[in-house]
């Protein structure tokens, strides 16, 4: 057996252990291992080390902090729904108000002007938050990650 062939098989040992070779490559490695004691030993060592690495135990995260994360995730769903209702409701209300104003036009009362100012202020704040979110999304490094 040539040294090149031996080296080639040697490089395939890890992938063989991980079940990542094609059927043909697997067969080649298997045949080689039957004849080569050195590679057999290397393979056994790697398998043992792999098992040892797998059984390494690391301390997990603190339970309290994990519960905190879980809670923060739980509020996400209602928050999204809340935004949907808020934006949808506001848009519908503005359209309705515009249609009514066009149909029955008359000078607004002081109360209506004050209420209008509050609504305009609220809408502007909402738009600024939405614009900020859209701006962040443009620079979000993770949005193109394949899911």
């Amino acid at each position: 057996m040539t040294a090149e062939r031996h080296e080639e098989i040697r490089r395939m040992l890890s992938a063989w252990l991980d079940g990542e070779l094609t059927q043909v490559e697997e067969q080649r490695v298997r045949v080689h291992l039957e004849d080569c004691a050195e590679c057999r030993r290397a393979c056994e060592d790697m398998a043992r080390l792999q098992e040892m690495t797998r059984s390494l135990r690391f301390a997990g995260p603190g339970e309290d902090r994990m519960k905190e994360i879980e809670k923060s995730l739980m509020v996400q769903a209602p928050r999204r729904l809340g935004w949907l209702f808020l934006v949808g409701g506001l848009a519908a209300w503005l359209v309705y108000a515009a249609v009514m104003a066009a149909r029955h036009w008359r000078p607004p009362t002081v109360e209506e002007l004050i209420a209008g100012a509050v609504v305009i202020g609220f809408v502007m704040l909402l738009v600024s938050v939405l614009m900020e979110r859209v701006r962040q999304l443009r620079y979000d490094r993770y949005r193109r990650i394949q899911k």
Binding site: P61, R65, L73, Q76, K147
Partner: peptide, 28 residues
């Protein structure tokens, strides 16, 4: 590590519905 974890799961949660099956979720 905890901050990273929190931020990672929040980002995933926001776009969980876009995840085409959960098979790729771990890599994501």
């Amino acid at each position: 590590a905890m901050d990273i974890l929190q931020e990672a799961y929040l980002r995933m949660h926001r776009r969980w519905s876009e995840c085409e099956g959960e098979a790729k979720a771990v890599a994501w």
